[in-house]
Design a protein around this nucleic acid. Structure first.
Lengths: 227, 227
DNA sequence: GTCTATAGCCGGATAGAC
DNA sequence: GTCTATCCGGCTATAGAC
């Protein structure tokens, strides 16, 4: 699996994510025309991510968002009831999308080693396609209210739990040699996370996602494969 | 070297950092009495870090800071001229402190392997003693103005550069077997960073800094030592 | 559906009493 | 040195015209 192949199989865009959102929330939305909703919502979410990544969601005023998206304050408020709801909307739909695509990629793989490799690649590739979202989740978790923050942390621990289980299976099958699955899973997570937290650095150094995937899978396998 | 030993050798506290700051900025400060400055400034910085870590520096109002520190708005403004200057002050003095202690720890070590081990440990131990500061730097870099952000990024790349140089020395001395020093240094940095970014997770799992240091040095050495 | 205008509030900052 | 009172600008949110 390379990034190109992954991209072909998981074709999705801001528009497709927002279209899903429209269908899931048709009744709650003030605006009724699908095309209008998809166009404006894509614009709103894209612009919000861009500004938030630059200076933080809290520091972004709705006037900023209005100016950069080209929509008036009034128009913005027909897509969400409050700034807080906008945050919720992005978090909720982003994480749903991630979950769906990750699970699709892991289905039907049983061998622990193959599963670990597939998971690392799928997660890296997803975080490449949705870099802004991943970065946003990481940075804005603490800006959320208690309830949203809890869901965000659970989502973070969930991906780690998947890794822990793969490691345990591999250990039981005597494919992996691991002393502490929790520490190992944490280290794997940290290496995957670095890809979207330091995207600018890798770009500067001309490292692409396939090179990074090869590098960290090599490093991880060296440290856990029974020899 | 264990964390206990490091702590003994590098005794420092919020008070000592603020006392250094007092002596360096004596002339610029409105308040003249050393003890008053040290007491209030420690309180201000400590409280700012605590609130910012909880919800972000930008989301912290000076009224929040006033309430939680017990100082009035007027009193706060006799220690800094603006909220922006408060951010600068914390960043500047924090990074100065980190730099001083890191350099002290690396002096006199020449062997690449020993140097790498010493650096990883020193950085982890420092980030344990100054966890709030490290977390703050990472999260608030983007909230800074252009100039401060530049300094912050340089400081980040500086620590990575130290690692790159150690790796190159070790490669030249045929102690390390490394294909790509930049990727390797980045991975080491990511693993070190995880300690202060996910402090809550490690606490929950009863992992202390010495255990973590042992774990990641083991993992790193497995991946780079010539055998 | 989208816009403009504005209500009402909260933030950073300061003046002047003690 | 520290406090309270206050200014004013910018913020979220909404009402009502088009």
């Amino acid at each position: 699996m390379t990034f190109e192949e992954f991209k072909q199989q998981h074709r999705f865009s801001m528009e497709s994510i927002c279209r899903d959102f429209y269908h899931a929330n048709k009744n709650r939305l003030k605006i009724k025309k699908e095309e209008v909703v998809v166009r404006n919502l894509s614009n709103i979410v894209e612009t919000t991510l861009a500004i938030s990544i630059r200076k933080g969601f809290d520091a972004m005023s709705l006037r900023d968002l209005s100016r950069e998206s080209g929509l008036s304050m009034g128009a913005l408020y027909s897509y969400f009831a409050s700034k807080e709801e906008l945050l919720y909307l992005i978090q909720d739909f982003g994480q749903r999308t991630v979950k769906t695509h990750l699970e699709a990629e892991l289905r039907d793989i049983t061998s622990p080693l193959e599963k670990l490799r597939a998971f690392i690649r799928a997660h890296l590739y997803l975080s490449e396609l949705m870099q802004q979202w991943f970065y946003f989740f990481f940075m804005e978790t603490r800006a959320m209210d208690k309830q949203d923050r809890k869901r965000s942390i659970e989502s973070e621990l969930m991906t780690e739990k998947i890794v822990i289980e793969i490691l345990q299976d591999g250990k039981a099958a005597q494919v992996f040699s691991i002393q502490d699955e929790l520490l190992t899973a944490g280290a794997i997570k940290a290496l995957m996370q670095d890809w979207y937290l330091k995207r600018w650095k890798f770009r500067q150094r001309n490292v692409n996602v396939d090179m990074y995937a090869d590098y960290i899978t090599g490093m991880i396998e060296t440290s856990i494969l029974d020899t």
